[in-house]
Each structure stands twice: as structure tokens, then as C-alpha cells.
């Protein structure tokens, strides 16, 4: 245990429980860090399942870690750990003080702390997935927190969701329409959903998927790898 915690003096007894977490990072390092991708969307749209699928399909090729913002704090993290998708030390959960959108948009401090903790723990991370707590259609990630973001909506939430728009649907770098296998069961019209989504998003990409039919989330995984390839341009 060090008796010097970084500001030129030592304590007889260290009272700082966090001193073992070395924190030599300047705020928001501009380069030489992992690519950060946010995954947002309404409650139950399949964000955690997508993160699990990506961790499974990319985990062997990409050095990745996950930050979860579930309102129950450890729920998502436990899911990822229990399913042995990622070792526990690669998943950090943050508390959002009942305000999941605040923690990813207006005051990103708790999430930046979690990301930097992971980056310090694993010096060579290539990718950090930040999963937001389930929220509404207006929740988007701050550009100060992530490099790119995926917004996940699901077929069972109603085929009018893309038409309603909102910043998540309209501005996310990728829109995922999830659970397409449920469309016939809930009477959702996929043509309406993809048509509205494409019209409202212009040139921004839309991917429809069913993790029941494609547990590896192949198309989204490929998109994520494309983002990683853009790193030199970004930093």
C-alpha cells in the first residue's frame, strides 16, 4: 500500500480506499484509447441481449469491455457475467441516480469514470460498449462519452416507433430494429417500420435483426468492426 497518493505528501495511515485504482489519465484522452460505442434504446428492446451477442461474437477477436447503466445497477452486469459472456472484471456497472438519460448525456462523469477504470485495468482495450439504462425515445449519448452510438428498438414495441422519431431514432449512427421474429405474432408490419426508419434517417444505416435466428448479431457485429477500422481517422 502506497503512502503517497499523488500530491506530494504521505499519510501515516492511508484512508483512501480508492488509492489502489491508479488514476493517471487526463480527462477524455483524445487518442490511444479504446473506441467507445453507446447502445441505447427503450426498456426491453434487447440492448443487453445485443451486448451479449456482440461480446460473444467479437470477444475472441477484439479486446473489449462493457459498461452497463441498468437502473437496477447490477442487473445487466450480472446477466453478462452469469452467461459467462465476459469475465466479471470486464464488466463495470454504474449507478445513475434514477436518471439513466442524465448519466449518458448531461452529466457523463459516472460513465467516463467507469470507462477509464476499465482502460486502466486493461491497458490494451480496443472497444468499450456502453449500454444505457432503458429509457425513452429522446435519450441519446453525449459525443463526449462515445464515438458512435447504436439505438435499439423492437418490433414488439409497435411498428409506429420509427415514425415517432426522436433523437435516438433519427440521429443514432446505427438504428437496429430488433426481434423481427416476433413481427407476425404482434401484427407488426416490417415494411412500415423499415420504410419509416429509412425515410426519417436519410443516409444513416438501419439493420433489422432477430437474435433468435442469428444469435451472433452478424450484421451489427460487422458494423462495429467498421467503426474500429475508423480509429486512426478519429484519433
Amino acid at each position: 500500500m502506497s503512502d503517497d497518493h499523488g500530491h506530494g505528501h504521505g499519510h501515516l495511515i492511508s484512508f483512501d480506499p480508492t488509492e489502489t485504482d491508479h488514476d493517471h489519465h487526463e480527462a477524455t484522452p483524445a487518442s490511444g484509447r479504446a473506441v467507445r460505442i453507446g447502445i441505447g434504446g427503450p426498456v426491453g428492446s434487447g440492448k443487453t441481449a445485443l451486448v451479449a451477442a456482440l461480446a460473444r461474437s467479437l470477444g475472441e477477436r477484439v479486446r473489449l469491455a462493457v459498461v452497463t447503466n441498468d437502473i437496477y445497477t447490477t442487473e445487466d452486469a450480472d446477466f453478462l457475467r452469469r452467461n459467462a459472456v465476459l469475465p466479471p472484471e470486464r464488466v463495470e456497472a454504474v449507478q445513475t441516480g434514477c436518471c439513466p438519460h442524465t448519466a449518458i448525456r448531461d452529466d457523463i462523469t459516472a460513465n467516463l469514470d467507469a470507462i477509464e477504470t476499465l482502460e486502466e485495468r486493461f491497458g490494451d482495450l480496443e472497444l468499450v460498449l456502453v449500454e444505457s439504462g432503458g429509457d425513452n425515445l429522446t435519450a441519446v449519448f453525449s459525443r463526449g462519452l462515445v464515438d458512435a452510438q447504436i439505438f435499439v428498438v423492437d418490433v414488439a414495441g409497435g411498428d409506429k416507433v420509427p415514425r415517432k422519431g426522436g433523437p435516438g431514432v433519427t440521429t443514432a449512427d446505427l438504428l437496429v430494429i430488433n426481434k423481427t421474429d416476433l413481427a407476425p405474432l404482434v401484427g407488426a408490419n416490417m415494411d412500415v417500420m423499415t420504410g419509416d426508419a429509412t425515410r426519417i434517417r436519410g443516409a444513416l444505416p438501419v439493420i433489422t435483426q432477430s437474435l433468435v435466428e442469428d444469435p451472433a448479431a452478424t450484421e451489427v457485429g460487422a458494423w462495429v468492426l467498421e467503426q474500429l477500422a475508423c480509429v486512426p481517422a478519429r484519433s
Binding site: H5, H7, D16, T18, E19, D23, L112
Partner: peptide, 27 residues
């Protein structure tokens, strides 16, 4: 207290730059 200090430091360095913070340490 130190977690809030660390978070505040990030915001503070951007708005009120000063060498004084080096004396206070990262947390």
C-alpha cells in the same frame, strides 16, 4: 467524496484551468 472530487476535477480543468489542482492529486 473522492469520486465526486475526481468527476468535478474533469469538469473544472476544462473551465477554470490552474496549476493548483496538481497539489490536490487525482482524487
Amino acid at each position: 467524496s473522492r469520486a465526486q472530487g475526481r468527476g468535478t476535477l474533469r469538469a473544472v480543468r476544462a473551465a477554470w484551468p490552474s496549476p493548483v489542482y496538481d497539489e490536490l492529486g487525482p482524487r
